[in-house]
Design a protein around this nucleic acid. Sequence first.
DNA 1: GATGAATGAGTCTTCATTCAT
DNA 2: CATGAATGAAGACTCATTCAT
Lengths: 205, 205, 205, 205
Amino acid sequence: MAAGKPRTRIQQKNNAAILEAALEVFSAHGFRGATLDQIARAAGLSKPNLLYYFASKEAIHVALLGALLDNWLDPLRALDARGDPVEEIVGYVMRKLDMARAMPRESRLFANEIVQGAPRILDKIKGPLKTLVDEKAVLIRGWAGAGRIAAVDPYHLIFSIWATTQHYADFDVQVRGILAPAGEAHFADAATFLSHLYRRALATP
Amino acid sequence: MAAGKPRTRIQQKNNAAILEAALEVFSAHGFRGATLDQIARAAGLSKPNLLYYFASKEAIHVALLGALLDNWLDPLRALDARGDPVEEIVGYVMRKLDMARAMPRESRLFANEIVQGAPRILDKIKGPLKTLVDEKAVLIRGWAGAGRIAAVDPYHLIFSIWATTQHYADFDVQVRGILAPAGEAHFADAATFLSHLYRRALATP
Amino acid sequence: MAAGKPRTRIQQKNNAAILEAALEVFSAHGFRGATLDQIARAAGLSKPNLLYYFASKEAIHVALLGALLDNWLDPLRALDARGDPVEEIVGYVMRKLDMARAMPRESRLFANEIVQGAPRILDKIKGPLKTLVDEKAVLIRGWAGAGRIAAVDPYHLIFSIWATTQHYADFDVQVRGILAPAGEAHFADAATFLSHLYRRALATP
Amino acid sequence: MAAGKPRTRIQQKNNAAILEAALEVFSAHGFRGATLDQIARAAGLSKPNLLYYFASKEAIHVALLGALLDNWLDPLRALDARGDPVEEIVGYVMRKLDMARAMPRESRLFANEIVQGAPRILDKIKGPLKTLVDEKAVLIRGWAGAGRIAAVDPYHLIFSIWATTQHYADFDVQVRGILAPAGEAHFADAATFLSHLYRRALATP
DNA sequence: GATGAATGAGTCTTCATTCAT
DNA sequence: CATGAATGAAGACTCATTCAT
C-alpha cells in the first residue's frame, strides 16, 4: 500500500486506531517486545488488515514516532523570545512536566527508542530536533549574554529539563516504588521542586 | 547448574564472560531484543554452553541486574552525614555523572528495564533501593531542617540527580546527535552546568 | 485460535486431519515420543500451521483424548438394564473386543496416557468415567442381588473386561509375536475364549 | 566400555543403582520421556559416569528389560505339570496378581515398551517368551484334552491372565480413580474376583 | 573410576509477513 | 477493505553424547 494519506472516513478511523494501539503497545514493551498481534487486538483489527494500512511493523513504529514528534516538541517551540526569560524557561519546565504526567506513553515510546540507539529516529534527531534546539539555544544564550539569566550552557540546560521532567514518565514505576504508598501527589511536589531548582539556577545575582 | 557461586577457574572465567557479554547485548537491545545467539557469540561460547551456566535467558538477565545493582548504588551510599552538605550532594552528582560516562551500558541496562515496567527488578526497587533512598532522604531533610541547605524535597532532589546524570548515558545518541560534531567534551560541560545547577539550588540565602 | 468449534469447511477438514494424524502418532509413540514434525507430516500441514489450529502440542493431545473418550465409553453406556443380564454383559465384552480390533490406535492412545499416570486425563477418569462406572456397577450389583448372575464384584468385573479386551489392541505386538504366524484369526479365538470365560463366571448355579 | 559383567564391588553397587534408578524413571515416563539426568540423579551418579557403565540410554533400557524379564516369567515357569490343573492355574493367577501389587514398576516398564511396539524387546518376545508360552500351552492343552479342565484355548487363557492381573499395575491410576477413596484393599477384592472367574471358567462339568 | 565442561541435533513455539479470496 | 489460512525464519531451551582431565 502506498504511504499516502488516508482518504475515506473509515480509513482515517482505522489509521488512528492503529496508531493509538501502537502507542499503547510499543511504549509498554519496546519495538522488539511488541507484537503485531497485540497491536491488532488493541486496534480491533485483523493482523492482515493492519498491514493493509502500514507496510510493516517498522512502518507503524516510524509513522507513530513521526506523528508524535511534532507535538512532542511544541513546549520547546513555545519558548518565546518576547517573554520574561526566567518565566519562559520555568514555564517550559512546567509544560514538559505536565506532558510527562498527561502523556507518559509518548514519553516512554521515545525513551525506549533512544535508549536503544534510536535506530528509527536518529535522522529526526539530527535534523528537525537539532535545528529546533540550536535555535532555542541561540535565544537562551542571548538572554544569558544580556545578563537576563545566569550564564548557563543552553544545551545542557535543555537536556536537564528533558531529563528531570520525562523522568516522571519514563521511570514511573521506580518513582512510585520509592514514594509508595503516595498517590498522584508527587507531580505537584515535583513541580515545586523543579520550579525552585530552575528559578535558583537561572536567577541573576 | 545450581545458582551457587562458581568454583573452578574456568567457571569463573566463563561466568564473567557471559555477564560481560550480556551487559553488552542487553543494554543495547533490551531484554526482549537481545538474543542468546548474540550473547553466546559475544561471550565466545556456544548457546547450549551458555545455558549450562545459567538456566535461562531470564536467569542471565536477573543475575546481571543483581550483580550490578549494588555497585550502582555506591555513590548514593557514600553520601556522608559528616561532610559539608552542599559539597556532599554536589560530589554525589559528580560521581553519578562520572559513572554515566564510564559505565553507560550499566545505566542503559537499568533504563531499559525500568522504562518497560521493571518486570524483573521491581522487588529490588521497592526493597533495597527504597530503603537506601529513605535513609538518605532523612539525612538530607535533616540538613535542610538545620538550615544548612535550602529547603528542598529530598526525594525529588535525588530523582533529579539520577535523571540529569543518567541522561548522558541513556540518551547518549540524542545528546551526541544534537551536540554533533562535538567530541567527548560534553561531559565536562555537563559537569560545569550541573555543578552550577545544584550549588545554586542548594545554597542558603 | 480459540478453542471454539471450527467453522469454515477448510477448518473442519484440517482440524480433522490433525486429530487423525495425532491419533496415529500419539498412539504409536506416546505423548513425549511424538513430535509435531511427525504429526504435521502425517496431516499434510506445516508445523506452524498446526499451531494455528491448536495452541500447543499438549492442546492437540487433550483435544484428541476429549474427542475420543465419549465414543470410547459407548459400549459400556449401552449396557441395558432391561436386557438379559448375561447376554448384556457378554454382549458388552464382544463390543469391547470388536473395538479393540477396529480401533487399536484409540486403545493404545489411552493406554499410553494411563500407564504414565494419566497426567492429562485424570480429571476425566475421576469425573465422567467414574460416574458412568458407578452407575453400571449399581445395575450389575442389582442383577447379582436378584440372583440373575453370579455374585461378583461389579467393579472388578468391569476392570477384567477392559483388561482382557483392550489387551488385544494395547499388547498387539506381543500377541502376534506369540501367536505368529497366525493371521487375524486370533480375534475370533479370543471371542470364543472370552465368551466362555464370562458365561461360566456369570452363570447362576 | 565393554558390556562385560561388572567386577569390583563398587562397580556392582553402581550398576545396581543405575538399574534401580532406570526402573523408577523409565516405568514412570517411558523410554522417550525419561532423561539421563533423571536417572543419574536418582542413581546418585554423574551423567558421564552413567555412560561409563552403559554405552547409551538405550543400552540401559535394554539391560534393564533383559535383567527383569527372567524374573518376570518365573510365575509362569512355575506352572507345574504334576500339580492339580485348576489349582496350578489359579495359583499362577494369584502369583501374577501379587507381582502386580509388589512390582508395579516392572509391569509398567514392560507395558510402556510393548504398547509402543516393543522396539527394544520384540526379539525376546518372539524368542524366549514365545518358547515358554508354547511349552505351557502344550501342558494346558494336555490338561484340557484329558478332561481335567474345561476346553479352553491355552494361549488366550494365558493372555487373559496377564491382562487381568497386570491391569492393576499398569492402569493403577485409573483403578484408584474409580475405586476412590478406597485404599489398598482392592487387591484383595481383585483376588476374590479373579479366583472366582478362573475357577468357574476352568471347572469341568 | 569419575566428573566438569561442552555441543550438535533436535523440539516446541513465536512472529512478521504473504497468499488467496 | 477485510480476513482466514499459511509459512519461513528465528528463538529459547532440551538432551544424549563426547571431550579432557
